[in-house]
Design a protein around this nucleic acid. Structure first.
Lengths: 111, 111
DNA sequence: CACAAGTACCTTGACAGACATAGTATAACG
DNA sequence: CGTTATACTATGTCTGTCAAGGTACTTGTG
């Protein structure tokens, strides 16, 4: 991984919600997908991922169910809820604003 | 403040270093400057600011000296060091990369 | 067949950065 | 003369990330 975790901090939830917006998924798959999408520049640590799931489910932004795999390890699938979708939209807005603010504050040419 | 602190997390040091790049400054002034630059959308909490100073000084990225105010409260001024400048440049690069990665991961239209 | 590697999930405890709260001290203003 | 603004400090809490360790099943390899 090339960037530090503090820069990604606070985005984990949004990243997960985004993945679930496309379709239900499970931990391992989500993480693989993230690695692919970023061409290996970023991966969620397992502990981070699963603690995010717990947090998101506790606050009602996602819900989960066990898959009915007849073979292989069991998978816990997650679904984004209505309030999860709202939260995603809000987080995206917040991100766009934060991006602007941070740029203003740290860009060299400054204003 | 409109954006959450987790989104700003990890940028505090860079924001401070950026301010000191222009000229030596002190805590209160830096914070005021941030509020102005962001038109009130962001301010560092005092505890955050001063603990960042301590951290930056301990790691040699800034150094400090007491101002010789003949009036008003005493001010502790901070100067950015050589390694502070390098760190600033590195953090800026990291930010540009992180920005790209996060956008890829959370933007609606996806990839 | 034994064993490594890959898939898939979970728990515990530690750490660091942001922050709330509270305190000290001086100057300016009405 | 009390409030507001300036200016800094110290202590303790909270939360997200992560390291480390564990369980369990499947597939490939020699």
């Amino acid at each position: 991984m090339s960037i530090t975790s503090d820069l990604l901090r606070g985005h984990t939830d949004t990243i997960i919600l985004k993945q679930l917006l496309k379709s239900d998924s499970y931990g391992y798959e989500i993480n693989k997908s993230i690695q692919e999408r970023t061409r290996g520049r970023y991966e969620l640590k397992e502990a981070t991922l699963y603690s995010a799931f717990r947090r998101l489910e506790e606050t009602g932004l996602i819900s989960s169910y066990w898959g009915d795999e007849t073979t292989g390890a069991r998978r816990r699938y997650y679904t984004i809820t209505g309030s999860g979708k709202k939260m995603y939209a809000k987080n995206l807005d917040d991100w766009n604003e934060a991006k602007e603010i941070i740029d203003e504050l740290i860009k060299e040419e400054g204003k």
